[in-house]
Design a protein around this nucleic acid. Structure first.
Length: 580
DNA sequence: CTAGGGTTAG
C-alpha cells in the first residue's frame, strides 16, 4: 500500500480534529502536502465534518495547486453553512474568475445557500445568470435552491417565475413554493399553489401539510384546515410531530381551542413547539388558567420552556386577570429557567397590570424595565388607559411616544377615544388636528369570514362583493332584530367630531367590516352553524355590543379573532367578559 | 464524494 493510500485510509476512520492534525502532520512528514487526492480528501473532511475546522480547511485549500471543482465545492459548502457565509460567495467568485474548474450543480446549490443566508439578492440574480449559461436551468434541485433564495430575499415573484419555468416539478419543489409563500406572508398564494398541485400526480407529504396548515392558521381558514387534518389522518401523517404541532396551531388560531386540545391530547410525542402552541392557544382564547395548568404539565414532562413559552403563558394571565400568577411566572423566567425577559415579556406584564387597572404599577414597570424607550410598551399602556378611561396617564404615554418620535395615527386614535370617553371635545379635536397636520396614516380595517371552501374579505362600507345587495339587505334586517332586543348603536363621540377612526367614519349608512362579514355569514350558512370571523384590528365597542345581541337574536355562536385575542359570543355574552 | 423542503411569539 502506498503512503498516500495509507493516509486516505486513515482519514476514513478519522473522527476528531486532533486526529486530523496528526494525519496532517503525517502528510507533511511524508511530503504529500501537494498530493491533490490527499489534500482534497482532507479538505472535504474539515469543511464538512462537525469536528472539522474551517480555518484549517482554508489552509489546506490554499496548498492545493489548481484546485478542481470538488475542492472548490468543499470550501464553498463549508463556508455556506458557517457563521460567515459571505466567505462562500467570495470563494465562488474566485472560482468563476479563475476559469480553471467549472462550477457544477453542487457548486450552485452551495453558493445559493450562502446567498440565502446573507440576503444577497443581486448576487442571486447573477448566479441565476451563470446557472443559465452553464445549462442547468432545468435542474430541479438547483432551481429549488434558486427559488428559495429569491423568496427568502424578498423576491417572491422571481421565485414563482423560476418555479413556473421548471419543466418538471417534484414534491420538494412544490413544498418549497408553498412554504416560501407561507413564510413570506402570502397565505392565499400558498393555498393556491396547492390547488395547482392537486391536479398533478406528485402527491403530498408532511412538509406540504405543515406549510398549508400554517397559512390556514394565519388566515383563519378552519374548513380547509379540517380538510387537511382529514388527509393527514388518511395518509398517516398525524404521527409526524411537525404536522401535529401545525394542527394545534391551526385549530387554536382558527378559533377552535377544543380542536387544538384534541390534537394535543392525542399526540404521542411532544416537543417544545407542541407545548408552546397549546399554551399560546389557551392564552389567546382567554384561558389563562388552562395555560397555567398545561405549563405545569410541561414542567412535569421534563420539557424546558423557552422565551416563547412565556409569551404565551403571560399573555394568558393578562387576558384572564391572573395578576399574581403572571408576576410569579415572570420572575420565574430568570430565577428558575435562566431566561432573560425580553421586551415582549415586559409588554405582557405592562398589559397584565394595565388591564387590571393598576396603571401606576404598569407605568413603573416600563420606567424600571431595561428598555424604557421602547414604543411598544408605551403603546400597551395607552391601550390600558383606554380600557380604564384614564386621561392623565394616557397623556403621559402619548407625550412619551411623541418625544420618542414614535407616535402613530393609531396612537392618536387611542388617546382621542380616551378624550371622547371623558367628553373632552378639546382633546378630541387636538388629536384630529395632529393626525391631519402630521399626515398620519391609519390602518384600514378588514374582516374575513370563511364560508364553505372560500374566504370572503370585507373592508368598511365594502361594496365590491358580488352579493353586495343581498348582504346590505340582510344587514339592515339583522340590525333591526338586534334593536328589538335592546341594541343601541353606539354613537361615537369621535365620529361626531369628524375624526377618521381606524375603520373610518361610521354613520347611519356606514358599516364596519365585521358587521358585513356577520351579515354575510348569517345569510350564507344554515341555522346553528357557528360564524368565525378574523379581523386585523381590535373589535370596537359598538361592534362588540352588536355581536353579543346577534348571538342571542339568531342563536348563533360567533367567534371573532381580533388583532390580539379571541371573543366567543354566545347567548348574548362574550367570553372576554367585556374586558378586552 | 458533495445538493433542495417543515411548526410556535411578534
Amino acid at each position: 500500500m502506498s503512503k498516500s493510500d495509507t493516509i486516505l485510509k486513515l482519514l476514513q476512520g478519522c473522527n476528531s480534529i486532533r486526529r486530523l492534525h496528526k494525519i496532517h502532520a503525517l502528510v507533511i512528514t511524508n511530503g504529500l502536502q501537494h498530493h491533490n487526492a490527499v489534500s482534497t480528501k482532507l479538505l472535504n473532511f474539515c469543511a464538512v465534518s462537525v469536528s472539522g475546522s474551517l480555518a484549517y480547511a482554508q489552509l489546506l485549500f490554499h496548498c492545493i495547486d489548481n484546485p478542481q471543482t470538488q475542492a472548490w465545492n468543499s470550501i464553498i459548502r463549508g463556508f455556506a453553512k458557517s457563521p460567515s457565509p459571505i466567505q462562500a460567495i467570495l470563494y465562488y467568485n474566485d472560482m468563476v474568475f479563475a476559469l480553471v474548474a467549472r462550477p457544477d450543480t453542487f457548486t450552485f446549490s452551495f453558493v445559493l445557500k450562502a446567498c440565502e443566508r446573507v440576503t444577497a439578492e443581486s448576487k442571486c440574480r447573477e448566479v441565476h445568470g451563470t446557472i443559465i449559461r452553464c445549462g442547468y436551468e432545468s435542474d430541479v434541485v438547483v432551481c429549488t435552491n434558486l427559488l428559495r433564495t429569491y423568496a427568502l430575499n424578498g423576491s417572491i415573484e422571481l421565485a414563482q417565475r423560476v418555479f413556473d419555468s421548471l419543466s418538471e416539478r417534484d414534491l420538494v419543489s412544490w413544498n418549497s413554493m408553498i412554504s416560501c409563500y407561507s413564510q413570506a406572508g402570502f397565505h392565499y398564494e400558498a393555498l393556491k399553489v396547492y390547488d395547482r398541485m392537486k391536479n398533478e400526480t406528485t402527491g403530498l407529504d408532511g412538509f406540504t401539510l405543515v406549510g398549508l396548515l400554517s397559512s390556514c392558521a394565519h388566515v383563519g381558514a378552519l374548513n380547509f384546515g379540517v380538510h387537511l387534518h382529514g388527509i393527514a389522518l388518511e395518509e398517516g401523517f398525524v404521527e409526524n410531530i411537525y404536522v401535529g404541532n401545525a394542527l394545534i396551531d391551526m385549530y387554536a388560531k382558527c378559533g377552535s381551542l377544543d380542536g387544538a386540545l384534541r390534537v394535543f391530547n392525542s399526540m404521542q410525542k411532544r416537543d417544545v413547539f407542541t407545548w408552546n402552541s397549546i399554551i399560546a392557544g389557551c392564552g389567546v382564547h382567554g384561558r389563562g388558567d388552562g395555560a397555567v395548568s398545561i405549563f405545569r404539565q410541561m414542567l412535569m414532562a421534563g420539557v424546558q420552556p423557552n422565551s416563547i413559552t412565556f409569551t404565551g403563558l403571560l399573555c394568558g394571565c393578562s387576558h384572564q386577570g391572573l395578576v399574581e400568577e403572571g408576576v410569579e411566572y415572570f420572575h420565574m423566567m430568570s430565577s428558575k429557567f435562566n431566561l432573560n425577559p425580553g421586551v415582549k415579556h415586559y409588554g405582557c406584564i405592562v398589559d397584565l397590570f394595565g388591564r387590571a387597572g393598576k396603571l401606576e404599577k404598569a407605568l413603573e414597570i416600563i420606567e424600571t424595565s431595561p428598555t424604557p424607550d421602547d414604543p411598544i410598551l408605551w403603546r400597551i399602556l395607552l391601550g390600558s388607559c383606554k380600557i380604564h378611561k384614564n386621561v392623565k396617564i394616557g397623556e403621559t404615554a402619548m407625550r412619551t411616544l411623541m418625544q420618542l418620535g414614535e407616535s402613530t395615527g393609531g396612537d392618536c386614535i387611542l388617546l382621542s377615544t380616551i378624550y371622547a370617553g371623558a367628553k373632552d371635545t378639546v382633546g378630541v379635536s387636538k388629536m384630529r388636528k395632529l393626525i391631519k397636520s402630521q399626515g398620519m396614516k391609519t390602518t384600514p380595517g378588514w374582516s374575513w369570514i370563511e364560508v364553505g371552501d372560500r374566504i370572503h374579505k370585507f373592508v368598511v362600507d365594502d361594496k365590491s362583493h358580488p352579493d353586495y345587495n343581498e348582504i346590505y339587505h340582510k344587514l339592515r334586517e339583522v340590525i333591526h332584530q338586534a334593536t328589538l332586543l335592546g341594541y343601541v348603536p353606539e354613537e361615537s363621540f369621535i365620529n361626531v367630531a369628524g375624526l377618521i377612526t381606524e375603520e373610518c367614519l361610521e354613520t347611519s349608512t356606514s358599516y364596519h367590516s365585521e358587521k358585513l362579514a356577520i351579515a354575510f355569514g348569517l345569510a350564507k350558512t344554515s341555522k346553528g352553524t357557528p360564524l368565525r370571523i378574523v379581523k386585523n384590528l381590535r373589535v370596537c365597542r359598538d361592534c362588540h355590543s352588536f355581536t353579543k345581541y346577534i348571538s342571542r337574536a339568531f342563536n348563533r355562536e360567533i367567534i371573532v379573532r381580533d388583532r390580539v385575542r379571541f371573543h366567543h359570543f354566545k347567548g348574548g355574552l362574550c367570553s372576554c367578559k367585556d374586558y378586552w
